[in-house]
Nucleic acid binder design. Structure first.
Length: 556
RNA sequence: GCGCUCGUAGCUCAACGGAUAGAGCAUUUGACUACGGAUCAAAAGGUUGGGGGUUCGAAUCCCUCCGAGCGCACCA
């Protein structure tokens, strides 16, 4: 019996109680069924009695008793207990619980997918790092978390587009170009420019590419033209490098949106016109302003500067409108904590367009990644060239370990990465624990074939009566809800944490229950049925790892 | 000064407002005739930064103080 089936049964019991006049409350639409922390409390528990007690005007325990009496009659329910202030603890028949193993195997890669997000069109923007240098650890975190989140939201039936806002317009790109040019001439990076080996590499490639194409040496051009060559070619090379790094990291975007486009296409003008019609524009001091204070922002924002140039924020306006016009009803943007100051104006903009903040536009703020060496924080600086890049991290621990380590923590917490420690003791990463469980089951399945244990010969869920099996089955049954919750809360780390727990349940079960007979012992239906459970576990581990963009190895 | 985010075991981190706050690493002790020991069993480790409040119940919500990070441009 699945948690959702149990939840439905509980609702039916409560309605019966109301119909019989035993209880005077309105039955909630959704009843939470959760796994108790303590195993002794049964397979599942609900606190619905505690929640209904006040409305019913009865002590919680009395409501719980009413529910327990009816629930005990439901087929598949073995026993029901009332505990503590009014929790209802439920234990299922082994057979009813064990059916889940077959359901999972039959659902295969589809197990865990739901339809709660069906019909939603979600645009998820993440990374969006400027093409002035390679991706650093912060961008790497958003790549891992954002891509996983995209997979998770898609698993709830929503249509998800991954998008990268490519900032190829403005002053920092000019600084990047000047830095390249300076390096190509053998000079120091400008005061406000960028340093590091990659600048030298790219500068050299710009010159080499020009020579290969039979173009004049950029260094021989007049200053402005030379800088333009280094700007255009340098940005392209840098961006290709970023794309390649992301691809190697298992992250591919559906749309790379160029900031330049909103400025050249007239999109900014259209957005301003629209806002003017809606009455949110002020003209003052020769500039055009969004009157965002009226919509909750700290201060009004300049859109068009008094020199006639569009402010950076103008691009945001046009870009948001563009996403909405492309049909996305949910625009989600992941930003680092250093950009949290944008939230106010972005939400005000959303409201100005007549949309609903936090519904049509969501901004997820993630905390920073600190680089640590010998227990001491190391500051990363592009100019000094002391950045640790995505490729450094991947070189140190590999894609799987890197993605997992970054995705298993809530983005609300800053995380510390000690590269030296990771290289030395890469087995610290819990990803190996989860992957090992998957590989171990794969080994079992290989051995089972050789030992003559075949799933096709039998499936008798009542034989899954060991305590470790009840615990494992309960964990397996939670998978769809874990995904749904991770999607709803935008918290991919829940999937990782769940997998660690599931792997733990599996390892404990493995220690207690054999799938293939020992020595010359005969093959029984118990072995065959356990093979179903092993396969079900492997399915869920594999599906879960896939949501994190981590491989599920058959051997390690 | 104002604002946002955060403060949980020695370390890195979990915990829809729920029961005795949990894992991993590190430490200590067991299980190697092992379906893969990258495992399992057990011990130890906490006033959830301090103090108030809300309620059947608070790490979680509210107030306040302390501490940390990050923001507060007609820069991008």
């Amino acid at each position: 019996m699945t948690p959702s089936a149990l939840s439905t049964a509980i609702r039916a019991c409560l309605r019966d109680a109301v119909a019989a006049g035993d209880l005077a409350v309105s039955v909630p639409e959704e009843i939470r069924v959760e796994r108790p922390r303590q195993r002794e409390h049964g397979d599942w528990a609900t606190n619905v009695a505690l929640q209904l007690a006040k409305a019913a005007g009865r002590p919680p325990r009395e409501v719980a008793e009413l529910l327990a009496a009816r629930l005990g009659e439901v087929p598949g329910v073995k026993s029901v207990d009332v505990a503590g202030p009014g929790f209802v603890n439920i234990t299922l028949d082994a057979a009813a619980a064990g059916e889940l193993a077959r359901d999972i195997v039959e659902a295969g890669s589809g197990f865990g997918r739901t339809q709660g997000g069906a019909g939603q069109r979600v645009n998820l923007e993440f990374v969006s790092a400027n093409p002035t240098g390679p991706l650093h650890l912060g961008g790497t975190r958003w790549a891992a978390v954002g891509d996983s989140l995209a997979r998770i939201i898609a698993a709830t039936g929503a249509d998800v587009t991954r998008e990268y806002y490519f900032n190829d317009h403005g002053a920092q790109i000019d600084r990047f170009a000047r830095s390249l040019l300076a390096r190509a001439r053998g000079q120091e990076a400008p005061e406000d420019g960028y340093g590091g080996q990659y600048i030298a590499d790219i500068a050299a490639r710009v010159i080499a590419d020009a020579a290969a194409a039979g173009e004049p040496d950029p260094l021989g051009l007049p200053e402005a033209e030379a800088q333009e060559v280094f700007r255009a070619r340098g940005v392209d090379l840098m961006f290709d490098e970023i794309k390649t790094s992301l691809h190697d990291f298992g992250v591919d975007f559906d749309v790379y949106f160029h900031e330049n486009d909103v400025h050249t296409s007239g999109a900014v003008d259209r957005a301003v016109t629209r806002l003017r019609e809606l009455g949110h524009i002020d003209d003052a001091d020769g500039a055009v302003w969004l009157r965002s204070t009226a919509l909750g922002d700290d201060k009004d924002r300049v859109i068009i500067k008094s020199d006639g140039e569009a402010a950076y924020f103008a691009g945001d306006l046009a870009y948001y409108l563009d996403k909405r016009e492309r049909g996305f009803d949910r625009v989600v943007i992941m930003l680092g904590a250093d950009h949290h100051g944008y939230v106010g104006r972005m939400m005000a903009m959303c409201a100005a367009f007549g949309d609903t903040p936090r519904e049509n536009l969501e901004i997820l703020i993630g905390q920073m990644v600190n680089l640590v060496r010998d227990g001491q924080p190391v500051r990363m600086a592009k100019r000094a060239g002391t950045i640790v890049t995505m490729e450094d991290l991947v070189d140190a621990v590999g894609v799987d370990a890197a993605r997992y380590a970054l995705a298993r923590s809530s983005v609300d917490s800053t995380i510390d990465i000690d590269l030296d420690l990771l290289v030395k003791r890469s087995n610290d990463n819990p990803v190996y624990y989860v992957q090992y469980a998957h590989a171990r089951i794969s080994g079992i399945v290989r051995n089972a074939g050789a030992a003559g244990v075949a799933m096709a010969d039998a499936f008798d869920p009542a034989l899954l009566d060991d305590d470790t099996e009840a615990v494992l089955l309960a964990a397996l049954g939670e998978f769809p809800r874990v995904i749904a919750q991770a999607a709803e809360l935008r918290e991919p780390h829940r999937v990782a944490r769940y997998l660690e727990e599931l792997a733990g349940r599996f390892h404990k079960w493995y220690d207690t229950c054999r799938v293939t007979p020992r020595g010359e012992d005969p093959v029984t239906d118990t072995h065959r049925t356990r093979l179903w459970l092993a396969e079900a576990t492997r399915t869920v581990l594999g599906n879960g790892l896939d949501l994190l963009g981590v491989s599920a190895p058959e051997r390690m």
